[in-house]
Every structure is written in structure tokens, then in C-alpha cells.
Design a protein around this nucleic acid. Structure first.
Lengths: 149, 149
DNA sequence: GATTTTAGTTTATGTACTATACTAATGGTT
DNA sequence: AACCATTAGTATAGTACATAAACTAAAATC
């Protein structure tokens, strides 16, 4: 029995306020997606992998800053990713309090799958919008974030 | 000890992809806010109140459709809102399976506070962006939602 | 050397969902 | 009228994602 509601029910989409649109985006952003062989990953998980893969050798606390969450949240997240064999912890060579994070082979696969999905996504955007429109859109998002902070 | 990270840390904001921006919006959208005398409400709560207040006499299942969540989620949400004395359940006069929802006095206060906040927000947007830019922004959001569905 | 800061973990808690299984009422169908 | 599928709502268990607070251990500063 599929209980899951359709998110994009055209019958209820009359006049959408920005608040409503953001709420919808929010819900969509929560859905796990498959990334290559790495299996389905939640948005937090893939964003974490993205942040590690983009730089390599990231510390837990750096990650917390970058993802704008607490250290405790990162501990939990990395715990899950390590259990899934996507990320590995190594102790820092100099500072033995610190933990250095890196992607495993499987993690790299997920990272690359995500990268190429992003590329595809950007291509799609560019098909539908002009460079100028995309710029306005990005500025709008940034403004929105600043207004809501 | 304040463990809470700053969401808008300018030092880490180099080049923001749309994905990253959306993730940030997402986090901001989760923060509870105060609405008049009604106390702090989570985004889900205030959106629910908004949906009820905008039409009045809404059924649980209609709400589930409109908010694009399962009926179970609505049951839980309404339970909380009823406990806070913001929403009241009445049984449907004709169909005794159904439950009709309406706002209490306090719920109305929250609704109106939210409305006026929305208005202020729109005014702020209009100060910073042209009508055309806002339109492009909304279209962008809608497109994004469709792409992600 | 003592103290403070930093790195990370742990635990308990809360929100926001889903999925699944359920009860009860309604509405067709024969 | 009896049967059965559908619909409305609830209950419960589980997951993801987060915080706050209290903690250990190591490093840095004084």
C-alpha cells in the first residue's frame, strides 16, 4: 500500500507563495538518492562526501563549520558514513586530538556520481534559463538566506 | 557554552553552488520562530496553521494533500497543535469518519502574525528586487521543484 | 606547571517524517 | 440486506537530522 503523497500535485498548486515553494524544496531536498554503486544516500550524507572529496584530508571540526552543524552532528554523520564504508577516519599525524577524514574507494565513486549529477543538473538549468536569469536566481537565493538568518 | 554554529559564516562562503545554497535554506527553514502570543512555532506548525486559516473547515486528509505529507504525519502535527491550543478538531456533521479542523483564538493570532510577517517579507523583497527579478526567482524555484520531483 | 582552549565523543532529547498495520465509517454492487 | 472495497483517521515503531550539555584527552598559552 503506497501511502506516500505526491509532492507535485497540480490540483492544489494554485497560487504559490515563496514560503510555500521553499517548504516544497525543503521536502524534496530530504529524499535520499542513489549515487552509483554506493547505494542510496541521504542529502546530508552526500553533502558530507562532497565536502570531503572536494578538498581531502578534512578535519571533523572543519566539516562541522563547513556544513554549519555542531561537532556532535558530524560525529554521528561520519559514524554512519564509516559504517557504510564511504569515509575513513585517520588520526592526525601531528595533532593527536584531531581526526583526518578521507573518502574510501566507494566514497570516491559516490563523489563522482554526485559531481556528474550536478553537472547534468546545471546543463538542464542552462537549457531552460539564460545565464542572466540563473545569476538573478542565485542572487535571490543568497538574499533570501541573508534575510532569514 | 554555546555550541551552535553560525549559519552564515562569511569566511567559508567562497563559491556557492545552488545545491549548497538550497542546503543552507533548508537549515534556516527549520528554525522555530515566535508568532505573536502563540509562542515559538516550527515551520511545519505555522504552515499547518496557515493552511487551515486560509480556508477554514479543513479535513485531515485535505491537509495531508496540501502539505504533501502522509496522514500519519498530519495526525501527529495536529496533535501537537491541539495540545498547544492553536487548532481544534470537530467531527464532521455528515461523514462521521472525517475530522474538521479550525483555528482557536490563539491559532488565529498566530495566523495573523504569520500573515503580517509574510507581508513584511514581501515588502523587503520588493525593496531589493524588481518585479521582474522576483518573477524570475519564483519561476526558478518552481522549475527547481519540478526538476527535483 | 597550571589553566584554558580545542578536538572529538557520548547521551538524552526533539522535530519531522515514513511505513505499516490497524479501526471505523461509508459507499457500491450484486 | 450482505459483502467488500475504499476512505478517514490513528497508533506505533523506526529513521534522519539536528541540538544541548557534559565529558575526555590533547595542545597551547601563560
Amino acid at each position: 500500500m503506497n501511502n506516500k503523497p505526491k509532492i507535485n500535485d497540480r490540483t492544489t498548486n494554485q497560487k504559490q507563495s515563496i514560503g510555500r515553494l521553499i517548504m516544497q524544496l525543503n521536502r524534496l531536498e530530504r529524499q535520499p538518492k542513489a549515487f552509483g554503486e554506493a547505494g542510496p544516500l541521504t542529502p546530508s550524507e552526500i553533502h558530507t562526501i562532497d565536502a570531503i572529496g572536494r578538498e581531502g584530508g578534512v578535519l571533523m571540526s572543519e566539516l562541522a563549520q563547513r556544513l554549519a552543524v555542531t561537532k556532535g552532528a558530524v560525529t554521528q554523520l561520519i559514524g554512519r558514513l564509516e559504517a557504510k564504508d564511504l569515509v575513513s577516519r585517520k588520526s592526525h599525524p601531528v595533532d593527536s586530538r584531531a581526526t583526518v577524514l578521507s573518502l574510501t574507494g566507494l566514497g570516491m565513486i559516490a563523489f563522482e556520481a554526485h559531481e556528474s549529477m550536478n553537472q547534468q543538473f546545471n546543463d538542464l538549468l542552462q537549457e531552460e534559463f539564460s545565464t542572466q536569469e540563473i545569476e538573478i536566481f542565485e542572487k535571490g537565493l543568497e538574499k533570501l538566506i541573508r534575510l532569514m538568518s
